[in-house]
């Protein structure tokens, strides 16, 4: 197996809510510059893993290193700009597409020029005519694209994507998949992508984490999903675990 430089490394990470264990202990790495998919049944703790990566949550114990630095040593807003996240349902703030794209910079009291906004839009495959459209008028696929573009504005080194294609039709899903692959190749961004779709995990992921009931059951190159060795992973792949 090829060895990769880790973008994010988990070391004995545990997380619980009100004393109820949700995750861990987990030890593993997300390789830098690669697309890692995070798969597993509902309630496995996938979203929790993403939120731990960008500091929306903190572990009860263990250590999380982002590009070699412990997350607690990083200022939360700086960490979240470095590790961007596209949320599952692509929430939009009220206003236009431009208002949404400008949001990450406005949070830093900076402005986004219209020309830059257009170039981010084109980057995700939307034409400039969308710039002044109301965010509420976008289709599901367009919202996800704007959400991804908005995350790109922070020029994050690592992008977290929480089931961004689960509500989309096949055509839009394909578009988002090729968009994410393109971002990965163009900017060398490390990508961690939660998906329910195993076919998608195999086709676009270089690497995969299989989480089941808060446990990291298997990690490795995506092809491990084609012929899993672990019994639970085998059952999950067959669709016996939901």
């Amino acid at each position: 197996m090829t060895t990769y430089q880790p973008a994010i490394h988990f070391k004995d990470v545990r997380y619980s809510i009100d004393g109820k264990p949700i995750l861990g202990p987990i030890t593993g790495s997300f390789p830098a510059g690669r697309i890692t998919t995070l798969v597993g049944p509902s309630g496995a703790g996938k979203t929790t893993v993403l939120k731990l990566c960008n500091g929306l949550l903190s572990p009860d114990s263990g250590e999380i290193l982002v590009q070699g630095h412990p997350v607690e040593s990083m200022e939360p807003t700086a960490l979240r700009r470095k590790v961007g996240m596209a949320l599952q349902d692509a929430p939009m703030v009220s206003g236009s597409v431009y208002d949404n794209l400008a949001l990450p910079l406005r949070l830093q009291k900076k402005e986004l020029s219209e020309a830059d906004a257009v170039s981010w839009l084109e980057d995700v495959g939307l034409s400039s005519e969308y710039l002044h459209k109301k965010a509420t008028e976008l289709s599901g696929g367009q919202r996800q694209k704007v959400s991804i573009a908005r995350t790109l504005v922070n020029r994050s080194d690592i992008l977290l994507m929480d089931e961004i294609t689960s509500a989309l039709d096949r055509g839009s899903r394909r578009e988002i998949e090729s968009l994410v692959t393109r971002i990965n190749e163009k900017y060398g961004t490390s990508i961690i992508w939660i998906t329910h779709n195993l076919e998608q995990a195999i086709s676009i992921g270089d690497y995969t984490w299989v989480l089941i009931a808060g446990e990291l059951v298997e990690t490795g190159e995506s092809r491990i999903l084609e012929d899993p060795t672990d019994e639970r992973v085998r059952r999950f792949v067959k669709g016996e675990l939901k």
């Binding site: 960008n54 929306l56 807003t77 700086a78 979240r80 700009r81 961007g84 996240m85 949320l87 349902d89 929430p91 703030v93 949001l103 990450p104 949070l107 830093q108 908005r150 995350t151 922070n154």
Partner: peptide
Amino acid sequence: RNRTELILSLGGTPKQAVHS
């Protein structure tokens, strides 16, 4: 909640996240 989480995830402060 979504909006609050969005602003935090984009590197906003709690004050920015609850402003509206």
